[in-house]
């Protein structure tokens, strides 16, 4: 009987294994962000007003689409990790349910670091393109030139949101494993909740999005993600594999 088999050591071995197996995830990230960059080039909002003598045309450009696409990317990454194929991959080798989840979370956190940094930096690619594509005098200077602390804050915030989204995707994946009907139930429960009690959704939005203190915001997101991930673990604890 081998002795060196505590959960953490196995989970870290699984993490390395999965990291090597999922290097192609970087390509999908790059693809999605380049795609988002192309969408962003046309501007996300424009406004124009005209009088007899003057026509004003204002166009907003922003990296929001890139962030949004990265959110979608991490959601599907999390969803994919719970698929039967990935589970069978785990249970082909040494694992238990906890170590499998831990290594998945590790992999997702790595993806979040990549996605958070790259999506925030993609905003600069957009700015650089703007800088050279337009007459400088046409650019609204406010907030155009980067400040290091803002970049860091942007990366961390994006990463935290991605963590929350990943934990939601992961939970959805586990629920789908329990019953396929959850594909429909999960979103309809959210929409239903919003219709029956619109306050709830607004409150939860405020809970995460309107917090001004970065520390409290971080704690809220981390705690919520932890709760969602633990729920996923609990729900899958009794599940049979490789049926």
């Amino acid at each position: 009987m081998s002795l060196s088999n505590n959960v953490l050591s196995v989970a870290s071995r699984q993490y390395v294994y999965k990291l090597k197996a999922n290097t192609s995830g970087v390509y999908s990230l790059i693809f999605i962000q380049v795609l988002a960059l192309l969408f962003s080039l046309s501007g996300i909002q424009s406004m124009s007003s005209a009088s007899d003598t003057l026509i004003v045309n204002v166009k907003y450009y922003s990296g929001d689409i890139m962030i949004a696409f990265t959110f979608i990317w991490i959601f599907f990454m999390a969803l994919r990790l719970t698929s039967i194929n990935y589970r069978t991959m785990d249970f082909t080798l040494v694992t238990n349910r906890l170590s499998s989840h831990l290594s998945n979370v590790g992999l997702l956190l790595t993806a979040i670091v990549f996605g958070g940094i790259s999506s925030s930096l993609m905003g600069f690619v957009l700015k650089i393109i703007m800088y050279f594509a337009f007459d400088r005098s046409q650019i609204g200077v406010n907030g155009f030139y980067p400040v290091v602390s803002n970049i860091l804050l942007g990366i961390i915030t994006t990463g935290l949101y991605m963590t929350l989204i990943a934990s939601m995707g992961y939970l959805l994946g586990i629920l789908i494993q329990i019953h396929v009907l959850f594909v429909v139930l999960y979103p309809s429960a959210l929409f239903g909740l919003a219709r029956v009690n619109p306050q709830v959704l607004k409150l939860s939005y405020d809970f995460f999005a309107s917090e001004t203190s970065p520390l409290i915001f971080a704690i809220r997101i981390i705690l919520s993600s932890l709760i969602l991930f633990s729920l996923s673990c609990l729900l899958s604890n009794r599940m049979e594999v490789r049926k």
Binding site: M1, S2, N5, N6, V7, V10, Y17, K18, K20, A21, N22, N85, T88, M89, T92, V94, T95, N96, L98, S99, R242
Partner: peptide
Amino acid sequence: SLQVSANIIFIDNQMVFP
């Protein structure tokens, strides 16, 4: 059980590798 899993290998034709 992690302990059991570490001491077992199960070979069939459903094994999946990345």
